[in-house]
Simulated assay, not measured.
Amino acid sequence: MAQLNFAFLKSSSLFSNQYKTANKILKLYEIEDYRDVMVNSRLLLEAIVKKIFTIENLDRYYPVHTGNRRTLRSDTFYLQSELHYPTSIINLFNEVRKFGNDAVHDEDYSISKGQAWRCICDINDIFVFLLNTYKEQKLYYMRPDIAMDAATHARDSFKKRTIKHPIKKTITSKSKNPEVKLAKQYLKQKKKSKFSTRLRKFLKK
């Protein structure tokens, strides 16, 4: 199998916080703890998705049908509807999520070495897609099908994306509304008048 490491995350301005977890997954693979590879990959995917919401300045409280709750699955669908990521990349999200669900909920589910490696490659290629498109890095995909898709659609679905920052609203005390301005002037004049009246009464004593 090809060599894989997540060292490229260490210096990443977007995903440096995810390096430790990604590296832990590799170590779990090395000691043949394939179930925990799946479980931790799913947890890492949740962190990645949360980061994408921040990068794209998306609403974490997007609407859902009554009685439903927001899950990793619904988050992924929402990202796809808003961002139109390549289908091949969204499939990686879904595969990691399903692997993780099976590992957590089905004790009898048999996880092979090949499946664990595929899950790690999925995580790697998700990171590569995000860093190549948002930060214009030139990282390599592990899965040949993803590499081929990226090469074929480099100018459309795999093109450069812009990181969106939250818009900060500037609050100013000066209002352009003439009625508000007149009201403020009236209150100011009224305060001055009351102060003058109190002062005259005080001086008469």
Rank of each mutant, 00 (worst) to 15 (best):
A103Y: 07
K159L: 13
H153L: 07
T71I: 06
A47C: 12
N5T: 01
N124Y: 05
L139Y: 06
I89C: 00
K50F: 14
L130Y: 06
D75L: 06
A183W: 08
N68P: 03
R73M: 09
G100E: 02
E95L: 15
P86S: 08
K192W: 04
A183P: 04
D36M: 07
K164P: 14
N132A: 01
V64G: 06
D33H: 11
T162G: 07
K174H: 07
S157C: 05
K176S: 06
S12L: 02
K205F: 08
A147G: 09
Q185A: 09
R118W: 08
L130W: 14
N57H: 04
P144Y: 03
I25G: 02
E30G: 06
A7N: 12
K164T: 14
S196A: 13
Y34V: 01
F77S: 05
N57R: 01
L44E: 02
H65C: 10
Y109P: 14
R118A: 05
H65G: 06
V64Y: 03
T66K: 06
S175T: 10
E107K: 12
S157Y: 05
A183K: 10
S196R: 12
F202D: 11
L58A: 00
E46W: 01
D33K: 13
N5C: 01
F15W: 08
I163N: 15
L203W: 09
R143P: 05
Y78G: 00
I171H: 06
P178G: 07
Q18V: 08
L199K: 09
N68E: 08
K184C: 14
G67R: 09
I146K: 00
R143L: 08
K181A: 03
I146W: 01
A150E: 00
L28S: 00
H105M: 07
Q137F: 05
Q115V: 00
V37H: 10
A154N: 15
S110Q: 12
R161Y: 13
R200L: 02
